[in-house]
Structures are given as structure tokens and as C-alpha cells.
Amino acid sequence: MLQEVWKKKGVREAVASYLFMAPTIIVMGIFLIIPIVYAIFLSFNRVRVLGDLSYKWSGLNNFIRIAGDERVWIALQNTAEYVAIVVPIQTVLALILALVLNSQIKGKNWFRIIFFLPTVTSSAVLTLIFMWIYNRNGLLNNFLDFLHLPTYNWLGDPAVALKSIMLMNIWSTAPFFMVIYLAALQDIPISLYEAATIDGASGWEKFFYITLPLLKPVTFFIVAMGVIGTFQLFDQSYIFSGGSGGPNNSTLTVVLLIYQYAFKSLDMGYAAALALMLAGVIMLATLVQRTFFKEN
């Protein structure tokens, strides 16, 4: 009987698949999925975690509180603006850098290493350097001044504070995606380009009809990870505002709020509800992208 079942190709394939997935399912199940399920449970409760642990079922109260919380909306708005600007720029920049560094140019190995430097530099060092570049009499303003362009109070002025963080973020994450594009470019068979050359295709045509379509799955990955990463912006805004999200909420992000509730006021129930809300928003954004990047 069992032997009969085993002979079916589908069953064998399913067993093999789950064996391939097993390490992932076990490790992720214990260290990520259980905590997330726990967070979902928390989001429907009033929780006291410190001292004597206690839960009180509160239904949808935490979610209702989100709807009425002005700071959440400001944070979402900041984050959405951030995503809309950072993701396209860093994706395109990463692609351009990868294309250039994949071509037969002299010294490309050196450029590859130099362009990667921002990704390996530690965040504490980045912060100091950017303080030094961004301050009112800093490098950037001196440079702008030299070109007779208007200067800004990059860190103090709320109208530009978020933009300063955006610049820094693009600068430090573009190399990350550049490397992934570089890897993806290796998987495009040279024979395709050769055939296109014989057919008399121009460089641009090859790019639009061969390279871009074949990079589609990886581009989906890069855009989706870009969206997830930027929606979860925390470090930079925490460092720049000292954790307050100011001035006047201009650098407030959803994850900064979550952090404030989870660790500062120990309001785990509300923090969990916010986290789920954010996950929902990111999921929506990812679903929209999927329609653009439909597979097959």
C-alpha cells in the first residue's frame, strides 16, 4: 500500500520538497513564526510584561487606537514618502552601477571594491561622518556655497531632515543591490546576446529585450526588499533625532514608534498591533508590485 503511494511521482516530489524545506521550516518556525504568532496574540491584549506577566483580552482596542493616533498617520506618511523616493532611485542606481561594472572597462575590480565601501562601513562611523558633512558649516554646505547654490540646515530643518536621511540611505544601500544585480547579470547566457548581435540589434535593444526581461525576477526581489527595508526604517532616524522622531515628527517612522512603545513605555500590546499594521501595509505594497512583476 505504502509502496504504491510512494511510486506516485507527485507524492515523491512532495516529500522531497518538504525535505528541502525542512531546515527552513524548523528554524524559522521556532525563532520567527512562534514569536510572530505570539505578537498577534499580544496585539489583542493589554499586556504587562515586566514583573508579573499578565494579559487582559482587549479585543480590537489596540487597532482602534491606531486609527485615532495622529502620530501613526504622520509616521506612515513620512515612511511612504521615504519609500516613494528612495526605492526607485536606489534600484536604478544599483542597476546602472552593476551594468557599468559588468562591462569590459579597465580597473573594474577596483571600482567594484570602492563602490562597495559604503555597505561595509559601520553605522556609528557613518553617523559621525554625516554629521560632519551635513552640519551648517559642513562639507556639503561649503560645496553648495562654492557653486553659489542655496545651503540648508540639513539636520535641524524638518523640511530637509528626512531628505538628508534619504540621501544617506541611498548612498549606503545601493551597493548592496548592485552586488545582487551583478550576480544576476552573470546568469544571462552570452549566447542570447551573440544571437542578437547577429540579428543586428543595437546595444539599447539588447538591453531592453534581453537584459531587462531576464532581470525581472531579481528586480522584483530588489524592489520588494527595498520597500520592506525602507518601510522599516529605524536606525538612521533614531540616531539623527535621538529617538524622538523630531523636530515636530519630521523623522518619525513607524518602527521608531514601535520601538518607543515596546521598550520605552513597555506597551507591548500596542507595539504588536502597530507592527502587524505595518506588516499589512508592506504586504499591500508588495501585492501591488507583484502585479507589475507577474511571473510567466
Partner: peptide
């Protein structure tokens, strides 16, 4: 590359895991 029941579901779960910020899973883990 493999067809198995739950393929899409697991892909979805892996994406979903990425979307929950780490600050909230820190204490449970």
C-alpha cells in the same frame, strides 16, 4: 522549481516574515 502542496503558502509566509519588524519579535525570541 518543485511542485508541492503548500508551495505558494510557504512562499507567502517567508515574505510575511520579512514584513514584521524585528523590534517586535526580539523579546519573544
Amino acid at each position: 522549481r518543485m511542485r508541492f502542496p503548500g508551495n505558494r503558502l510557504w512562499f507567502f509566509i517567508i515574505l510575511a516574515v520579512l514584513m514584521v519588524p524585528g523590534q517586535i519579535t526580539l523579546i519573544p525570541s
